[in-house]
Design a protein around this nucleic acid. Sequence first.
DNA 1: ATAGGGTTATTT
DNA 2: AAATAACCCTAT
Length: 258
Amino acid sequence: MGAPKQKWTSEEEEALRRGVLKHGAGKWRTIQKDPEFSPVLSSRSNIDLKDKWRNLSFSASGLGSRDKLRVPRPKAPSSSPSPSPQLLLLSAPNNVAEASPPEDCEKSPQDDKTPSPKFSMILEALDELKEPNGSEVATICNFIEIDKSYKLTDSYAKRALAPMKDPSLKKKDSAKSSKAAKGVGQLSPALDAAEAAAMKVADAEAKSHLANEHMMEVERIGKMAEETESLLELASELYERCSRGEALTILQVAHREF
DNA sequence: ATAGGGTTATTT
DNA sequence: AAATAACCCTAT
């Protein structure tokens, strides 16, 4: 797996995800300039963002292991004489694994008004992906998967690396993620005396402040979960329909679902 | 400024 | 040695 040079931190990744969801993939400069992610992505260039996103997308969509489309890479054919100087005739690969039935899943060219944020998300995904033949279902699902990972810090936490970089002691985040993922309101069991004491000293002001923040955060996440759920529902229907080769347009689905 | 191809560097 | 991630270069 990858082991890099200036590895991306979790915060940076999250900022990038959020940025893509907000501004859309491709607006790297905009994302980087956005005051919300600017502090986190200060040391990353727009190109870095693009590259990182490419890596993320590829590893995400490449479920399992993608076909090795790697070019033979004739580095140094010094000692290997070409076995056959004759011309190479490649027979038709016929790798049309996914027989594209008719023109399915064509996106609407100009859709201005978006009835709901969920719907706009789908539209954005299709627009960003810009697949001429209509986006593949897997690709759409991949995009939605992104949203899922954004909400469920769960899968995000699974990829927690930081071998010896930062132990990342973010109680706020862990509490958030656990609540978001399962709704299990578990208090951290490992509160030693010092921490307990510190907590006692914590004044009511800070408490109320934090409580307020948490409430808002929980509410926000709940809303997102709701949206994601219906988003996944929509994705399922899209998948089913497209699998049957049924031609459908976004508006069609939009009128039906929203 | 962005997308894509290609290279370097690290991990397994 | 292969896979992966960051980085680099170039055409549009």
